[in-house]
Write a protein that binds this DNA or RNA. Structure first.
Length: 571
DNA sequence: GCCGTTTTCGGCCCGACTGTTTTCAGTCG
């Protein structure tokens, strides 16, 4: 059973128990579900490797839940869940996604009207059966109908690269108002998560009413969920929800800290505050009635005895302990990036000729750029064969002659065939500065075969980098499974780097992969995989991913000069 | 149900918004 399915059942158990007014257990089940959901490894594999004992090592999973997870993995079902579901056969997973409906209200609807599914809820609301119930009214019935309509449209999380510009545009529009003081993005967007579920904006204002009025009437807004003096929530036309909060000037730092999260990071901070005899909230740090911090985030962290922690690290995955011990990494900065390792031109499936791509790289302040088009197997992308590549090398030489101030590296995104061999002759690959090997076919191989396919490719002395290693794309789960430990070992043996692929529709390596690889002493190369000049701007996303994996400048090859990159990859 | 430099028992983050409840429960983040 996959992590997602295990987590879904645990979430549903939490909802059922909460509907039954059970104390504390719902929170415990939810915490366990979140822990399993965010594992970078399959819980099945963890169990196969170390049994129930290994499950107990996952924080939030104790004696009871580990037994239940064990049952799910070994039998594919869970008796406890089946019994609960019999008592309360409600589709909590779907229905709690409707704003305003939680476990308790859904139980009321079930008891009064027998509502179990989205369809039954819709029918009950359309027939006006809900308005008369205790605890509901005309308004809530309408809200439910609106919620269902929104749910039926596309919902869910969106890619960072797709949302960041929209969020910045809203912030810019609000900034134009004189009523707005300080303003900034918070939430998972500020932490630069690969995907974001909503947009959180935080501002200060002497006239919150005016700011809220402006916010809910922005043209981007499709529906308004709530409008108050300190908080308003809307649904945007791009499909995401957006919250705006207005706070006092002297609470901006603590509010920014609080609403940036993550939730787990904040809970850990609050526990530290409690131990020190303080109370931490979005309004500041309080010692009794007295407020002792809150104006800036630095002040908040400082009062808790911590250095400032970068938003990308705030996941409670060891950053607080590292901060306490003074061993936070000096995260790589966008300014340190000296070149893009992976761009396409119109020689394969890119839009522009070599010359324009090189000029675009120079405009971005890079010292070098590596041209890396597809190899011949990728027919739909007009992949290059040996002769094409030689001709492209000539073209690169010609372009280099006419453009100063930037170095051009000769690269190739070479297909890794099903058997692990590379798609071009060794003599040709030897003439490249950088060979990026990538999988573009036979995605459904079993984990072992796929891993060994890549390991075989790594043994070719010409291969330098594994490109977009996970194959994950938007809307799909991991396209194929890999045995990371074996892969890391092979990369170490052969001096191979992994690519952090910043192409906007790709959900490639995440922070956990990167941390694990760094622990093996491996290096990364950020490639935008740009197919148009504009897409080279997504370097920022690649850097954010590296930062979320705790990478420093030395861990990322893009911080090297052109000659050092060449030397790093010459056999 | 989980967890432990307060603890193997007794805690578990905290506050705003909404609707309908005339004093607050449920939901949300």
């Amino acid at each position: 059973m996959k992590n997602e399915s295990v987590a879904k059942i645990l979430y549903e158990i939490a909802d059922i128990l909460e509907a039954q007014d059970v104390q504390w257990k719902p929170a415990a089940y939810r915490k366990a579900a979140m822990a399993i959901e965010s594992l970078s490894e399959e819980v099945e594999d963890i169990y196969r490797g170390g049994g129930k004992k290994a499950l107990l090592k996952i924080p939030g999973i104790g004696e009871n839940i580990s037994k239940k997870v064990e049952e799910m993995i070994t039998t594919g079902g869970l008796g406890y869940y089946a019994r609960l579901k019999k008592e309360l056969p409600i589709d909590f997973g779907t229905l709690t996604a409707i704003p305003g409906l939680g476990p308790k209200k859904l139980k009321k609807l079930f008891n009064a009207l027998g509502v179990r599914t989205l369809e039954e809820l819709k029918e009950a609301a359309e027939r006006g059966k809900i308005a008369g119930l205790e605890g509901f009214g005309e308004k809530s019935e309408q809200e439910i109908l609106k919620g269902i309509a929104l749910l039926e449209k596309t919902r869910g999380r969106a890619l960072l690269g797709a949302i960041l510009p929209d969020a910045l545009a809203i912030v810019e529009k609000l900034k134009e108002s004189k009523a707005v003081g300080r303003i900034g993005i918070a939430g998972s967007l500020r932490r630069m998560k690969e995907t974001v579920g909503d947009i959180d904006i935080l501002a200060t204002s002497g006239e919150p009413g005016r700011v809220m009025g402006l916010f809910v009437s922005l043209p981007e807004v499709e529906a308004v969920f709530a409008k108050g003096m300190t908080k308003s929530s809307v649904h945007l036309k791009n499909g995401l929800d957006c919250d705006l909060r207005v706070v006092e000037e002297d609470s901006f730092g603590s509010a920014l800290q609080y609403f940036t999260g993550s939730k787990d990071h904040n809970i850990a901070l609050r526990k530290i505050a409690i131990k020190m005899g303080y109370k931490l909230s979005e309004y500041g740090i309080f010692k009794g009635e007295e407020k002792i911090a809150g104006r800036t985030e630095e002040e908040v962290y400082g009062r808790l005895g911590l250095p400032y922690i970068e938003p990308e690290l705030r996941e409670n995955t060891g950053e607080i302990e590292a901060a306490q011990e003074g061993r936070l990494p000096a995260l790589i900065e966008l300014e340190e990036v000296r070149g893009d390792l992976h761009v396409h031109t119109n020689w394969s499936d890119g839009s522009e000729p070599v010359e324009e791509v090189v000029l675009a790289a120079r405009e971005r302040g890079y010292e070098w750029v590596c041209i890396s088009d597809h190899s011949q197997s990728l027919r739909i992308a007009h992949g290059l064969d040996e002769r094409d590549l030689e001709r492209q090398f000539d073209e690169i030489e010609r372009v280099k002659g006419g453009i100063t101030g930037i170095e051009v590296l000769r690269g190739i995104e070479c297909d890794i065939r099903k058997d692990g061999s590379l798609d071009l002759m060794d003599e040709t690959l030897e003439r490249c500065d950088i060979v990026i090997g990538a999988v573009h076919s036979h995605f459904n191989l079993p984990m072992r075969e796929m891993t060994e396919r890549m390991m075989r490719a790594m043994e070719n002395p010409n291969l330098d980098i594994i490109g977009h290693p996970t194959g994950r794309l938007l809307g799909e789960r991991e396209a194929y499974e890999l045995d990371w430990e074996r892969l890391f070992d092979a990369a170490e043996d052969n001096g191979i780097a992994f690519e952090i692929n910043a192409f906007p529709s790709r959900l490639d390596l995440d922070g956990a992969h990167i941390k694990a690889a760094l622990a093996h002493g491996l290096q990364f190369a950020i490639g935008t995989d740009a197919h148009t000049k504009d897409q080279m701007d997504f370097m920022e996303l690649g850097v954010a991913t590296a930062r979320r994996g705790w990478a420093e400048g030395k861990d990322v090859l893009n911080t090297l000069g052109a000659e050092d990159v060449r030397r790093r990859f010459s056999p």
